[in-house]
Design a protein around this nucleic acid. Structure first.
Length: 298
DNA sequence: CGCGGTCAAGTGGCT
DNA sequence: AGCCACTTGACCGCG
């Protein structure tokens, strides 16, 4: 088991997703900002290693406008060695890496342009993992997309894009997460049947929409969609409901007892857990201690 | 130099 | 009909 948090470290005084507006785009500025983003990423990774957090999600914003037509710069070549060194560090410390393309990536959109933009974004994010030299256990995590009034048809469209349009390099890394309002775990398992994509499990989303599966059973079903050699062990997002807030809203800080209970409920199951909690590494640190106390983490 | 409006992109639920 | 949330606020113009 590995534990981690997404994208941002609030203890460090740097950001790996500094960016700029389209209106102020210049190549010079792009290069300078990417250098800063990658330098910060290195610091975050070092912090994580020091604190036994070996699971981390890279921000989508590492390369600004990477899949936008305005960016014609060959950043892949320019930063080849930087990415390789980052990847070497990740591999040396046996870290697990994911990326989560944002809500604009919708593979089942009826809008062809949206689909093409989505593919371009997935190619960009996959390229980063490729340049780092990471194997296919480093994943790109997206949602099923929209329902458009008919989930079965929409998932069929997803499968069509998957089989006919996605490059192999993206297919090898793609996984789909159950979301909190449209595609439940069951829906995702159906998509897995159509495509073979592993299903990344989100416990809070599962609490929002489900078909009555108890938590342990749900984790087991998701885990079965991961091919041990090709995909690695199950990745999951862990969060808890912010009390009194909109359903699905993440808490500010991890309720340690709830996390303890979750680990107890899933005893014997191996997985890597991403803490989607507002205060980031602070909660991840607490989670690491809880997991260690239960002997789930060395 | 701090504040607040705004920023590439989609979708659906809530008010 | 418009606002908000989403894996993450950051940027920039203005006062």
């Amino acid at each position: 088991m590995k534990i981690g948090y997404p994208c941002i470290n609030q203890s460090l005084d740097c950001s790996s997703s500094r960016t700029f507006r389209l209106a102020s785009y210049t190549e010079e500025r792009l290069i300078e900002l990417v250098e800063q983003n990658l330098a910060c990423l290195r610091r975050i990774l070092e912090y994580n290693v020091e604190h036994d957090m070996l699971f981390f999600r890279l921000t989508s914003g590492l390369i600004p406008f990477a899949s936008h037509p305005v960016n014609t710069y060959n950043w892949q070549e320019h930063f080849t060695m930087t990415f390789r060194r980052l990847g070497d560090y990740i591999k040396k410390h046996n870290m697990r890496i994911s990326m989560h393309p944002d809500q604009f990536v919708v593979l089942n959109s009826p809008n062809e342009q949206t689909v093409q933009n989505s593919i371009a974004e997935l190619v960009y994010q996959g390229t980063i993992l490729d340049l780092m030299g990471l194997d296919t256990t480093a994943k790109l995590q997206i949602h099923g997309g929209g329902a458009y009034g008919d989930k079965a048809t929409a998932l069929g469209r997803f499968a069509g894009v998957y089989h006919n349009q996605l490059p192999d390099a993206v297919k090898a890394r793609l996984c789909v997460e159950n979301d909190d309002r449209t595609y439940s775990l069951q829906d995702c398992l159906y998509l897995h049947q159509l495509t073979g994509v592993p299903i990344i499990f989100d416990n809070l989303h599962h609490e929002c929409i489900n078909n009555g599966e108890p938590m342990r059973e749900a984790v087991e079903m998701a885990a079965q969609t991961w091919h041990p050699e090709h995909d690695g062990i199950l990745m999951m997002d862990y969060s808890a409901q912010a009390l009194g807030e909109r359903k699905g809203k993440h808490v500010q800080s991890i309720p340690e007892q709830l996390f303890h209970d979750f680990l107890a409920e899933t005893e014997g199951l191996d997985m890597d857990i991403m803490l989607e909690i507002k205060d980031k590494e602070a909660s991840a640190l607490k989670a690491v201690e809880v997991a260690k106390s239960l002997g789930r983490l060395k």
